[in-house]
C-alpha cells in the first residue's frame, strides 16, 4: 500500500461527489482509480458497493444510464 496515495475511497468522499452531480458507477470508479488509492480492483469494487448500499442514493436514468445522486 503506497503511503503517498492522495485519494481515499471513503463514504464521505463518495457522498460529496454525489451531492455535486449525478454519476454512474463508471464515473465514480474514475474518481477512485486504483493507481491513486492504492487499492486493488477487487477492493475498489467491493468497498464502493458497500458505500453505495449504505448511502442509498437517489437514482435516475440519464441518457439511458443509471445515475446516482444525493439531494442536499
Amino acid at each position: 500500500t503506497p503511503s503517498s496515495s492522495d485519494v481515499h475511497l471513503t463514504e464521505e468522499a463518495v457522498r460529496r461527489y454525489l451531492i455535486r452531480k449525478p454519476m454512474t458507477t463508471k464515473d465514480l470508479l474514475k474518481k477512485f482509480q486504483t493507481k491513486r488509492t492504492g487499492l486493488s480492483s477487487e477492493q475498489t469494487v467491493n468497498v464502493l458497493a458497500q458505500i453505495l448500499k449504505r448511502l442509498n442514493p437517489e437514482r435516475k436514468s440519464i441518457a439511458d444510464k443509471m445515475h446516482f445522486y444525493i439531494k442536499q
Binding site: 458507477t25 470508479l29 480492483s41 469494487v45 464502493l48 458497493a49 448500499k53 443509471m66
Partner: peptide, 20 residues
C-alpha cells in the same frame, strides 16, 4: 486501461444489481 475500467464498472453494477 479502459477495458479494466469497464470490467470494474460491470462488476460493481452486478454487485449492486439486487440492491437497485
Amino acid at each position: 486501461s479502459s477495458s479494466e475500467a469497464d470490467e470494474m464498472a460491470a462488476a460493481l453494477d452486478a454487485e449492486l444489481n439486487d440492491f437497485i
